[in-house]
Write a protein that binds this DNA or RNA. Structure first.
Lengths: 204, 204
DNA sequence: ACCTGAACACCGTTCAAGT
DNA sequence: ACCTGAACACCGTTCAAGT
């Protein structure tokens, strides 16, 4: 009933497992069961769990593809690249964690980096200064997505400490207290932050 | 030779283990050995591994303490808060990962949030707009630190793909290619990014 | 109230043996 | 070249039994 086992079929099954049940569900024994084979044959094809995960991340990152900027000004086009990258990353929620754990952020950011370099050049920046802008946007985007994912997994913000910034502040600025206590519109926050960062970087 | 076991001594030993050898080294069996007790007594004191880690994170976060801003302008003072927070977090490298895994970013950010609210008020912002600035800085700082930690654990950037942004770009702007290929001065990048973000947020 | 050892159901990995 | 079962050294957790 199952295709003959190969490096490819192992990666496919592993990918499906991670997509559906998260990285923790990817145990060698479960994977073997899924493939209808002995645990040990997996080792023959992919070495061990560590390199299996490496290969999986590698593959998914390679599938991310190019990014086409939109917008008129270079600033707007940089922002568009950031937004596309964020969406791409959020389409592979488990991937983010895995890439993070293996320290492959750099590699994951490659396609976006190429697009950003073009736009920063178009904005008239060169050399080290241009590189700094690219790096700043990279850290911003990846960092934001990591924090977002983190908040989504968060255990429903511990109660018992509402208004932790002090009743005084809540009195003086109830609208702020309400805003900080409520949920975050991460999409809008992301766009606003990137716009502010890019504006600050391109026009000093 | 060992003090009588209690919830406190368990947390102390667990903390020492994490500080010295990382969170993975914290196994119930090793912890028991360290305490000179049976594995099962630990369960009596702290429930299970999950809540032990919860308690550990809770405790360390509580020890982070207040943040005193420095600088003349509100913008400068916001940047100073960001820098202090970054330093605090980097002093507890394992903590960051643990807080991240348990989704307690919010709680970890509490002291900094109080300081930021004061500064944003001083800058003349109120309500939802002020909240957005606080949140943007929060995401920026925590995200940046997460990416930094990630890069430090990274497996010495895979070789075989130097100049991945294309030889064309390297020709046109060799200084940029060199800058992007070389290591990152994360401290400077962080400061520059926060400054740009804050400038962009406070002056539109 | 606190501590214990034995046991259970899981891991990843190795290895010698098969075809 | 590929697959196998048995075995090893680890996990976290439960439980009945001790004092």
């Amino acid at each position: 009933m199952t295709r003959p086992v190969s490096r490819e079929t192992v990666l496919d099954a592993a990918g499906a497992l991670v997509r559906q049940h998260g990285p923790d569900a990817l145990t060698m024994r479960r994977l073997a069961a899924e493939l209808g084979t002995a645990v040990t044959s997996i080792y023959w094809h992919v070495g061990n769990r560590e390199s299996l995960l490496d290969a999986l991340v590698e593959r998914t990152v390679a599938d991310l593809g190019e990014i086409r900027p939109t917008g008129r000004t270079p600033a707007a086009r940089v922002v568009s690249v950031a937004r596309v990258l964020r969406r791409q990353l959020r389409e592979h929620p488990h991937l983010i964690a895995m890439v993070h754990e293996r320290g492959l952020t750099e590699r994951m950011f490659m396609p976006a980096q190429r697009a950003l370099v073009r736009e920063v050049h178009a904005a008239g920046l060169r050399g080290a200064r241009a590189a700094r802008v690219v790096r700043a946007v990279q850290f911003q985007v990846v960092g934001h997505v990591l924090v977002e994912r983190n908040r989504e997994r968060a255990p429903a913000q511990r109660p018992g400490e509402e208004e932790p910034w002090g009743a005084r502040t809540a009195e003086r600025d109830p609208a702020l207290a309400r805003a900080l206590a409520g949920p975050v519109d991460t999409e809008r926050l992301f766009t606003a932050s990137v716009k502010a960062l890019v504006a600050g970087l391109l026009t000093p």
